[in-house]
Design a protein around this nucleic acid. Structure first.
Lengths: 156, 156
DNA sequence: CCTCCTTGTAATTATTTTCCTTACAAGGGA
DNA sequence: TCCCTTGTAAGGAAAATAATTACAAGGAGG
C-alpha cells in the first residue's frame, strides 16, 4: 500500500465516466457512492484530473465528463495527474559525505530507482481507460450507481 | 516517496559490504555512521537481509558480511527482502458492489497495478549490487567510513 | 432577482505509516 | 568473567494519508 489510493479512485472515476459516455449525469455525490468515499475526496480528485486536462467540470454546473475519449486516456496520464512528480522510492537523506559510499550513494540510487520507476510508468502508459472499462464489462454485475444509499460510503 | 527508505538503506549496507569483500569489519555502528541513521535501524535491516539469505550475521559476533558475491545479488532480491510482498499500489477498500463498476473495479485494478509493479520489479532484477558498487567507484571521494563521528547520524 | 443545487477549496481531525530512540536480553571472544 | 557485539521488543515523535466539516463561488430555473 504505497501509492495513495487517490490513484485508484481517479481510475474509478474515469471508468464511471467512460462506461456511458455523455449519457448519465455524474455528480460527485453519485460517484462517491460507487467508490465508497466522501464526496469531497471525489471533488479533490476530479479537480486534479481537470487541471491535467482529462475531465471537464465547472463550478456551479453539476456533473463531470471526460475531456477526451477513454481510448486516449492512459493510466500514466492519470498517475501523473494525481501523483504529480512524486518519487516512488525514498532515499535516506543524510549519508556521510566523508565515506566513499555515502558520498555517492544518493546519485547512484536516484539513477537506479529512477529507471525502475520509469519501467513502472511505461507499463502504465500501455493501458488506457477504455481497456479498463472493457475489462469491467467482461464481468458485469447488475445494479445502478445512481441509486446508491449514502451509507455505502461510511459503512463497513 | 512511497517505498520506505529501508530499501535504500539496505542497498547502502550491501554496497558497503560489497566494496571491500571480506576485508573490513562492518559493524552496525560503523555502517550507521556511513548511512546517517541509528545503529538499530541498520541491525533491523541486516536482520531482514539475513532472513532473506543475502548476508551473514551472528549474535555476539561483530560484523556483517555478504552471503554471496555482489554480482549475484539483484536489487530485486533486496527489495523483496525488506518490502516482503507489499503491494505498490493501494486500492480503495469499499467500492459499492451494487454498481457494475464498483463490483469489478478491485479485481481489474489489482490486475493492472500488478502488471505495473511487475515491470518495476523486472527492472530491479536487472541491476546487481556489483553494478551499484561499480557505479559508486566511478565517482569516488576520499574518506574512510570506519572513522565517522557519531554526530553524523543526528546532525543536519 | 432569488432560491436551490452543484463544484471548489480551505481547514480540522483521525488514522495509519514511517522513523527514531531507549532498553535490554542473548551470545561469542579475549 | 568482562566487554563487546547483535537481535528484538517497546515507546514515542514525526510525517503521510484519509475522512469530514464548513463555506465561498457560481450556474440553472423559476
Amino acid at each position: 500500500m504505497r501509492v495513495a489510493s487517490r490513484f485508484a479512485i481517479a481510475v474509478h472515476v474515469l471508468s464511471l465516466l467512460g462506461t456511458d459516455e455523455e449519457q448519465a449525469l455524474h455528480t460527485s455525490d453519485e460517484m462517491a457512492g460507487s467508490i465508497g468515499v466522501n464526496p469531497v475526496v471525489v471533488r479533490n480528485v476530479t479537480g486534479m484530473l481537470r487541471r491535467a486536462g482529462l475531465v471537464r467540470t465547472q463550478q456551479g454546473v453539476p456533473g463531470t465528463r471526460l475531456a477526451r475519449p477513454p481510448a486516449e486516456i492512459r493510466l500514466l496520464d492519470v498517475y501523473r495527474a494525481v501523483e504529480d512528480d512524486a518519487e516512488l522510492f525514498a532515499v535516506h537523506p543524510r549519508p556521510n559525505a566523508g565515506c566513499p559510499v555515502g558520498a555517492n550513494i544518493q546519485a547512484t540510487l536516484e539513477r537506479v530507482f529512477g529507471e525502475a520507476q520509469q519501467a513502472m510508468e511505461a507499463r502504465l502508459g500501455e493501458t488506457t481507460i477504455a481497456q479498463v472499462v472493457q475489462n469491467l464489462r467482461a464481468a458485469p454485475r447488475a445494479g445502478a450507481c445512481g441509486t446508491l444509499l449514502p451509507e455505502a460510503a461510511s459503512g463497513n
